[in-house]
Design a protein around this nucleic acid. Structure first.
Lengths: 231, 231
DNA sequence: CGATTAATTTATCACGCGATAAGTTTGGTG
DNA sequence: CACCAAACTTATCGCGTGATAAATTAATCG
C-alpha cells in the first residue's frame, strides 16, 4: 500500500479493494443478507448484492460455512460492550439504575432486525456459538443482577438460586420478546422502549422481593413515582 | 401377501392406506420433519421418512408450499383449546388461580420441540398465520388477563393500557423463552415448570399492582406462603 | 513503458431440488 | 377370476446450488 513519490490521493472509483476491506465488506453484507434469507440463502444472490461474481467469494472464504461462521463472530462478538460487566456490578449506583442503564444499552445493541434474526436462525440451527452466548447472558447478566439485588436488599450473600435465575430469565426473555415482536413480527408495540424496560424492571424488582426475600424491597421507579402510566 | 376368503382381520402389513389416513399421516410427519430441518428441508428426504417415494407427495398436495400450509394449520390451530377462553374469564376463581391453570395447560400444549420450532420458523418467514396467532394471543390471553386483574383489584373498568399490555407481553415472552431455552437451545433449566410459571405469575401480579394501580394488590401465592424457594 | 502479481470474471462440474408424465402394482367389486 | 380405478413407483426435466479451474483484467513496481 506504500506509494513512492506521488500524492496520497485515494482513488475515487476504486474497483479493486484491498483484501482486508473486501473481506470486511463481504462479512457485513453477508450478515444483512443471511439475516433476511436465512442461512440457506444462495451464494449467487449474495454475490449480486455485493456487486461481484459468485466465485470471488471463494477467494476470501474457503466455503460458505466458513463465511457464515465469520458472520456469527462479528454479529455475536462485536456488539458486546466490555463495560457492561463493570456497570452491573458498580455498587455506587442502585441496582435499579444499573439495570435500567444496562438494558437500555443492551437493547440498543441487539434490537435490530439483523441481530435478532441471525440470533434466532443460529439458535434453530443449534450452533455452538449460540449456546455459548446463552451461557454468557446467564453468567454475565442474570447471575449478576440477582446477586446485586440480593446485596442491595440485605439478603444473605450466596449463589443465585435456580428459581431466582429463572425469574431473571423471565425478565430477559420478556424484554427479548418485545424486540422480536417489534423487529421480526412487525407487531404494533408501545414504541417507548425505555418505558417498557423500566416497567419490566420495576415489576421484576417489586415482584422478586415478595416471591423470594421476605418482602425486603429495593428502591424502584414505582416506589418513587407511583403512577407509571404512559401518554 | 393378500388373503382371499379369510376374516376381516386388519392387515398387518398394510401397504396402501386410505387417502384420508395417508394425508393425515403425511401432514403429521411433515410437521416433525420441517420442525427439525426448517421449511427448506427437501421433499425427497421427507418422503424417505414417510416410507414412500417423493412423487407420491404430489398426489396429496399440489405443491410443497401447500403441504407446508397444512402443517401450519394443524400445528397452530389444533392445539388451541376452546375452553381456555372461558377459563380466563371465569370470575368464580381468583385471577391468580386462573392464570396458573391457563399457563399450565397452555405450556403443556406448546412446549414441544415441534411446536416451538415451527412457530419460530414460520415467524422468521413472516407468514400471515404467525401474525394472526400473535394477535390471538394478545386478544384472548393478555387483554383478558389485564382486564380480569383490574376487576379483581377493584380498579376502574377500562380497556387495558398499552403499557399494561406490554407488561403482559413481558410475562408471555418470559414464559415462552423458558420453553425455547429448554426445547430448542437444550439449556439446563429449572425442571419444575409449574413452579417457574407460578413464580413468574406472582412477580407479574405483585409487580403490576405497584407499577400501575396504586398498590392495590391481588391474592398471590407469595402473599399466602412467603418463601417461594425450591427444593 | 513493460513485466509481474493478484484481484476478478467466465465457464463449467456434479448434485440436489420441486415438479410432471408415464408405467406398474394393488385392492375392491361384479 | 377378471376387470378397473386408484395408489404408488420409475424415469426424467429444468433449474439452482456450492465449488473449482482457467482466462482476463487491473494495479504495482522496476
Amino acid at each position: 500500500m506504500t506509494r513512492p513519490a506521488a500524492l496520497a490521493v485515494p482513488r475515487v472509483k476504486q474497483r479493486r479493494l484491498s483484501p482486508d476491506e473486501r473481506r470486511r465488506d463481504f462479512i457485513a453484507k453477508a450478515a444483512e443478507f443471511f439475516a433476511e434469507e436465512g442461512f440457506d440463502g444462495g451464494t449467487r444472490e449474495l454475490a449480486r448484492k455485493l456487486g461481484v461474481t459468485q466465485p470471488l467469494l471463494y477467494r476470501y472464504f474457503p466455503s460458505k460455512e466458513e463465511l457464515i461462521r465469520e458472520v456469527y463472530r462479528t454479529v455475536y462478538l462485536d456488539r458486546w460492550q466490555a463495560d457492561w460487566d463493570k456497570l452491573l456490578t458498580d455498587r455506587s449506583l442502585p441496582i435499579r439504575e444499573r439495570m435500567q442503564r444496562f438494558y437500555d444499552a443492551y437493547t440498543d445493541a441487539i434490537f435490530t432486525r439483523e441481530w435478532m434474526r441471525i440470533y434466532l436462525f443460529s439458535g434453530l440451527k443449534g450452533v455452538e456459538i449460540n449456546k455459548w452466548y446463552v451461557g454468557i447472558v446467564e453468567d454475565r447478566i442474570l447471575k449478576r443482577i440477582v446477586t446485586e439485588y440480593r446485596a442491595e436488599a440485605g439478603l444473605p450473600e450466596q449463589d443465585p438460586l435456580p428459581a431466582e435465575l429463572e425469574l431473571g430469565w423471565i425478565l430477559q426473555g420478556g424484554i427479548f420478546y418485545y424486540g422480536v415482536r417489534k423487529h421480526i413480527y412487525g407487531s404494533t408495540v408501545l414504541e417507548d422502549k425505555e418505558r417498557v424496560i423500566s416497567n419490566a424492571i420495576d415489576v421484576f424488582l417489586e415482584g422478586i422481593s415478595r416471591v423470594f426475600g421476605t418482602g425486603v424491597r429495593v428502591r424502584t421507579t414505582a416506589a418513587r413515582r407511583p403512577p407509571a402510566d404512559e401518554a
